[in-house]
Each structure stands twice: as C-alpha cells, then as structure tokens.
Simulated scan of single mutants.
Amino acid sequence: MPDTRTPIPDSARRVADLLRELGHDQPVVMLPETGKTSAEAAAGLGCSVAEIAKSIVFRRLSDDAPVMVVASGVNRVDEAKVAARLGPLGRADAKFVKTRIGYAIGGVCPIGHLEKTVMLIDEDLLKLDSVWAAAGHPHAVFRLTPAQLVAMTGAPVADVALRA
C-alpha cells in the first residue's frame, strides 16, 4: 500500500500544492515501488489496472503542440482516433515531454503543465468510481474521481481506445 508519510520529491510537491490550491482533498502518496507502468502502479495501490489514469503524450505535427491523452490503464490509445479529432500526431520523446509538459516520463501528471496542452480523456475512465493519476514523479500518485479529472483539466471526453 502507498505511504502518505514518506517525504515527496519536488516535482510531486508541486502537484500536491496545485491539488491543495484546487481544493482537492486527497493527498499525493508515494508508492514503495515504481509506478512507471499501469500494471506496476495498480500492484502498488492494490487496485485494478483500469483504475490507473495513464498520461500518454504526443506531438501535434501541424503546430508542434503537446497533446496528452489520459487513458484507462487497460486501454491502448488508438492514435488514429486521436489524430482524427486533433490532427496528425508524431512521437513525443522524453526531452519533449519534460521541457513542454514539465514532468519526466513515468510520472506525467494530467495537471500543472508548463504550457498549454491539448488534451483528451478516455471515456472508459468515466465508468469508474475513482482513478489514480501520476503526481509528477514515477513513485507519486493521487486519487480522484473521473468527474474531478474532467473538471481539473477541462479536457473533452472521447473514445480514444484501440478496440479489437
């Protein structure tokens, strides 16, 4: 189980401060093991992989804007669906994510970005009572409801999952 007493790194402290400013009542917690993947985070939290709200970042080709899809941990993001809504996409490498979004890969938070980020939220997350999102560090997470995620990000909800 996560520990709410472990000191948190500066990047996660920034998220904790932002959550407090937003009036969010759930703390940032530190996982004993990394939460870089949805499966690792779910194992550390004792929840289902579906309850992990993973942040996938792309680069929009038309204007080089960062594009983030917050998806259920069990879903693969269908890049063609996202591109149909937002325009052609390219790969966002670790440097792009860190310099444009403000977090290292493995701890990319859906809020508190360095610059305006184009976002979509996976409609499958809205089927859940609560989800866990990265809090700025590979070991840091916070809990929220899907409605809170939508409210905090202002992002539209869309079908982004690759379906078999």
Rank of each mutant, 00 (worst) to 15 (best):
R20L: 14
M68Q: 13
T6V: 13
L18N: 06
A135D: 08
D64S: 13
A164G: 13
L162P: 00
L18T: 07
P7F: 10
S55Q: 00
D64E: 15
I56F: 00
A140K: 06
G106A: 04
R143C: 10
A135Q: 07
R100G: 03
D25A: 12
P110I: 07
A83I: 06
D93M: 03
A12Q: 11
M68V: 03
V69M: 10
A140N: 03
M1F: 04
D122V: 11
A16N: 04
G35W: 14
L19R: 11
A83W: 11
L149F: 10
V118E: 14
P88V: 09
T117G: 04
M152Q: 12
S11R: 10
A71M: 03
D78F: 02
G102M: 02
G106V: 04
S38I: 10
T99V: 13
R20Y: 08
V57K: 04
A134T: 09
K81A: 15
V29Q: 08
P138K: 09
M68I: 03
D78A: 13
M1R: 05
I56L: 11
V67C: 05
S55W: 01
P138W: 08
P110E: 05
S130M: 02
L144I: 06
E51G: 10
F58T: 01
S48F: 08
L149N: 02
H24I: 14
S11C: 02
G23Q: 11
A12I: 09
D78G: 05
I52K: 01
C47E: 14
T4S: 13
K36L: 11
N75C: 11
V77D: 06
D17F: 02
K95A: 15
V69W: 04
V160K: 06
A140T: 07
S62T: 11
G44H: 12
L61N: 12
V49E: 15
L31M: 01
D129C: 00
E21V: 14
G46S: 14
A158F: 09
